[in-house]
C-alpha cells in the first residue's frame, strides 16, 4: 500500500485532485449538466449541504464564465459543517430544516428574489445498514425539498441525491407533486456498485393552496405496508449521464494514461474538524484499551434555559 493506492483504485478520485476539485463528486454535477443543461442561463443558485464544496466549485466555474454580467451571479452554499472558503460563493452555516435558514438564504439575494436552481448532494453519516441509510437519505432529501419550496422560483430546477431502495418510488411520487418533470439520473462517475443516484426535477410549481412550512420538514409519513406492495405501473424515466467514451468509475486504470507521467497529489481540501479527531491519539495509545479523560470545563456547557 503506497500513497498512490487510492489513485489506482479510483480514476475520478485522481482526476479530481488533478483538476483541483475538492471531491470526486464534482464530476457528477458536470455530467448531469452535460446531459440536462441545468446550468444554462442560471444566475442564482443555492447549494444545500455543500461541504466540502465541490459542487459549489463547479457552479462558480460554470456560472461566472458563462455569464456576461458577472454581478448578477450569486451562489449561496449552506452546510452544518464548516467549509473552507471559495471565491464567488457566499457561505452560510445553518440547518436546512429551519425557516430562519431559508430567510437567511433569501436575504442574500437582492430584494428576496427567488432562485433559479437548488442543488443538494448531502448524505448522512452512513451506518452501514443499507435500508436505514436509504431511509435517512430520503428524509434528508425531503428536508432539502422542503426548504426548496421557500427558495425556488416557479419553473426552477432542483437536483438532489437519493439512495435507490425500497421506498424510492414513494419519494419520487412526492417530488412529482412539486415538479412537472422528474428524472432519475446516474452519472457515469457514480460507481455502478453504489446505490446512489440523482433526481433531476424541472419545472417547479407549488401545488394550489400549498404554503411552504417548516412544521413538518421531513414530510413524515409511513411507507406502504407489505400487503399493499404491488407491481408498479408508474414509469419514472432513468437516464445515465456522461459520455460513453468518458472514464468508467468502476474500471481499473493504470497510473499512466495516454503516456502521461503520473504525479501523486495530495487532496485539494482535507477534512475540517472531523468528530473523531480528538479520539484518534487516544484510542491508538498502545497498551491501554480504555482511556479516561477529565473534562475540560471550558469546552463543556450545560445551558439551563429557565430560572
Amino acid at each position: 500500500m503506497g500513497k498512490s493506492s487510492k489513485d489506482k483504485r479510483d480514476i475520478y478520485y485522481r482526476l479530481a485532485k488533478e483538476q483541483g476539485w475538492r471531491a470526486r463528486s464534482a464530476f457528477k454535477l458536470i455530467q448531469i449538466n452535460s446531459q440536462f443543461h441545468v446550468l444554462d442561463g442560471v444566475k442564482r443558485v443555492v447549494d444545500l449541504c455543500a461541504a466540502p464544496g465541490s459542487w459549489s466549485q463547479v457552479l462558480s466555474k460554470a456560472l461566472y464564465s458563462d455569464s456576461e454580467d458577472k454581478d448578477d451571479v450569486k451562489i449561496v452554499a449552506v452546510d452544518l459543517q464548516s467549509m473552507a472558503p471559495l471565491p464567488g460563493v457566499v457561505q452560510l452555516k445553518g440547518d436546512i430544516t429551519k425557516e430562519s435558514t431559508a430567510n437567511e438564504i433569501l436575504a442574500q439575494f437582492d430584494g428576496g428574489q427567488l432562485v433559479d436552481l437548488v442543488v443538494f448532494d448531502g448524505a448522512p453519516d452512513v451506518t452501514g445498514l443499507h435500508d436505514l441509510d436509504e431511509y435517512v437519505q430520503a428524509q434528508l432529501l425531503l428536508a432539502a425539498l422542503n426548504i426548496t419550496t421557500y427558495l425556488l422560483k416557479p419553473g426552477g430546477t432542483f437536483i438532489g441525491k437519493i439512495f435507490r431502495g425500497k421506498d424510492s418510488s414513494l419519494l419520487i411520487s412526492q417530488l412529482e407533486i412539486f415538479f412537472g418533470d422528474v428524472v432519475v439520473a446516474k452519472p457515469c462517475s457514480s460507481r455502478n456498485s453504489s446505490i446512489e443516484s440523482f433526481v433531476v426535477c424541472r419545472d417547479f410549481r407549488l401545488p394550489d393552496g400549498y404554503k411552504p412550512t417548516m412544521a413538518n420538514p421531513l414530510m413524515t409519513n409511513d411507507s406502504l405496508s407489505w400487503d399493499e406492495m404491488d407491481v408498479h405501473r408508474v414509469i419514472t424515466p432513468f437516464v445515465a449521464c456522461g459520455s460513453l467514451s468518458g472514464f468508467d468509475a468502476d474500471k481499473t486504470y493504470p497510473l499512466e494514461i495516454d503516456g502521461l507521467q503520473y504525479i501523486q497529489r495530495n487532496p485539494v481540501q482535507g477534512p475540517i474538524a472531523p468528530p473523531y479527531e480528538k479520539s484518534k491519539p487516544l484510542i491508538t495509545t498502545k497498551g491501554t484499551s480504555v482511556v479516561q479523560t477529565p473534562i475540560d470545563q471550558g469546552v463543556a456547557s450545560a445551558e439551563k434555559l429557565m430560572d
Binding site: A273, P275, Y276, E277, V299, S301, A302, E303, L305, M306
Partner: peptide
C-alpha cells in the same frame, strides 16, 4: 411549557452526533 418554551436544558460536550 414555561414562557412558551418546553426545553429544560441543553448539554454540550460531544464533538459528533
Amino acid at each position: 411549557r414555561l414562557n412558551g418554551l418546553n426545553i429544560l436544558q441543553r448539554l454540550q460536550m460531544h464533538e459528533g452526533v
